[in-house]
Each structure stands twice: as structure tokens, then as C-alpha cells.
């Protein structure tokens, strides 16, 4: 392995790393908002919306991200909607993630006894107050393991962004290999940067998970 090459490529990888993180986290943020919304609709069986929510989940959970990205990147301009590759990536990740997050949140919501809702009502809380102050924080704590798993999964899924010409980590590695044949160095850097991106999330995830579980269940 040629460390000179590695040093030379490092800035390129750094740039790709930052782009991947930026788009990845915007997508994850979107997926969280979407996931909570869809889980809420499904859990409270809101008429009409629940059908749309169900169809959404099945559509995005059962198609690969690559196909979704192609659809957004090449398909939308055909109907006059043109968005940048960055936003395509974030939106695609958000839509895919939303379908996974929704199921994660829903399992959290369903694990909370009805009596929690009732005691909130009997204290005079409105539906909104009950949901925000009593149900959501508990559902969130219970869903943390699922959310952390989804976040890690989504960050890894960013590796298909190169297909819509986003200069992410995967794109950079493939590009450099194609140009200079420094396969070993390029792949080494690729692995290194993915681990750099995911290991902190994984560790922080377990810490948050433990804390939340301890607060509620004491173990």
C-alpha cells in the first residue's frame, strides 16, 4: 500500500465524506418526520389517510433505493419537476427511510398501554397534549433500537447515490480506481471513511438506547 497515494487522495475523500454526511442526515431527518407522521396516521386509523399511508409504506419498502432514485432523478423531469441530484438523494433516502421509521414508531406506539392515554385524558389533556407529552416521548424511547438500526442502514444506503452522479464516497472511490488503478488504496480509504461515518452513530446509538431504557425500565 502506497501511503503517498493515500495522502494525496485524502482531501477528495474528505469532500465526498462531507457531502455524503450532509445528504445522508438531511434524508434521515426527513425520514424521521415522515415516519412519525405516517405512524401517527396508522396508529390512530385516520380514515382515507391510513390507506395512503399503507400504500406509501408498501411502495417504498418493497422497491430498491436505486430504483426510487432513478424515478426521482430521471422520471420527475419528464413531468416538469426538476430537482438537483443532492435533493433527489435526500428525498429518496427520506422516503425510503420514512417507510421503515413508520413501522419502527408504530411498534413503539402500540407498546404503550391504553391506560396511559386514559390517565392523560382524565387529567384534562387535549388529544394533542396527550400525544406530545405522554405518548410520543414513550414511543420514541421504545423505538430507539429500531431507529438506530434504521439510521445506520440509511447511511449505508447512501452508497447508491453515485448512480445519480452525486460525488459521494462510493463515486469517488470508483472514479479514482477507474482513473489510476490504485485499487487497494482507494478501497482502504472507502472502508475507513464508511467506518468513520458509522461507528460514532453506532456507539452514540447504544448509549442513548441504554439511557432511555434505564430511565423507563431500570435495566
Amino acid at each position: 500500500m502506497d501511503f503517498g497515494v493515500i495522502k494525496e487522495y485524502l482531501p477528495l475523500y474528505e469532500k465526498a465524506f462531507l457531502l455524503t454526511i450532509k445528504i445522508g442526515w438531511i434524508g434521515i431527518l426527513l425520514s424521521l418526520v415522515l415516519g412519525i407522521l405516517v405512524a401517527f396516521i396508522l396508529f390512530y386509523r385516520i380514515p382515507v389517510l391510513k390507506l395512503i399511508a399503507g400504500a406509501y409504506i408498501e411502495l417504498f419498502r418493497n422497491t430498491p433505493l436505486l430504483v426510487q432514485l432513478f424515478f426521482l432523478y430521471f422520471g420527475l423531469p419528464k413531468i416538469g419537476l426538476s430537482i438537483s441530484a443532492e435533493w433527489c438523494g435526500a428525498l429518496g433516502l427520506g422516503l425510503l427511510g420514512g417507510s421503515y421509521m413508520a413501522e419502527g414508531f408504530r411498534s413503539g406506539l402500540e407498546a404503550i398501554p391504553v391506560s396511559q392515554t386514559e390517565s392523560a385524558y382524565s387529567l384534562g389533556m387535549s388529544k394533542g397534549q396527550m400525544f406530545r407529552k405522554v405518548i410520543l416521548p414513550q414511543a420514541f424511547s421504545l423505538s430507539i433500537p429500531a431507529i438506530v438500526a434504521n439510521v445506520i442502514f440509511l447511511l449505508k444506503e447512501t452508497s447508491v447515490f453515485s448512480a445519480i452522479s452525486l460525488m459521494d464516497l462510493m463515486f469517488t472511490a470508483k472514479d479514482l480506481i477507474g482513473l489510476y488503478y490504485n485499487t487497494t488504496e482507494c478501497l482502504f480509504l472507502l472502508v475507513l471513511f464508511y467506518i468513520l461515518m458509522l461507528l460514532p452513530v453506532s456507539i452514540a446509538g447504544s448509549v442513548v438506547e441504554k439511557k432511555a431504557r434505564y430511565r423507563m425500565f431500570g435495566v
Binding site: 391506560s115 396511559q116 386514559e118 382524565s122 384534562g124 405522554v134 416521548p137
Partner: peptide
């Protein structure tokens, strides 16, 4: 109409908010 709230209820299973 806010009248139910003027009656406080205590349940068999306590139902304190665990978080």
C-alpha cells in the same frame, strides 16, 4: 367541555407516566 376534568380519577394500575 372541560367538565370531566373537574373530576379526578385514580386507576387500578396507577398509570403514572414512566418517562
Amino acid at each position: 367541555n372541560g367538565l370531566c376534568e373537574r373530576m379526578g380519577m385514580v386507576f387500578q394500575s396507577y398509570d403514572l407516566f414512566p418517562h
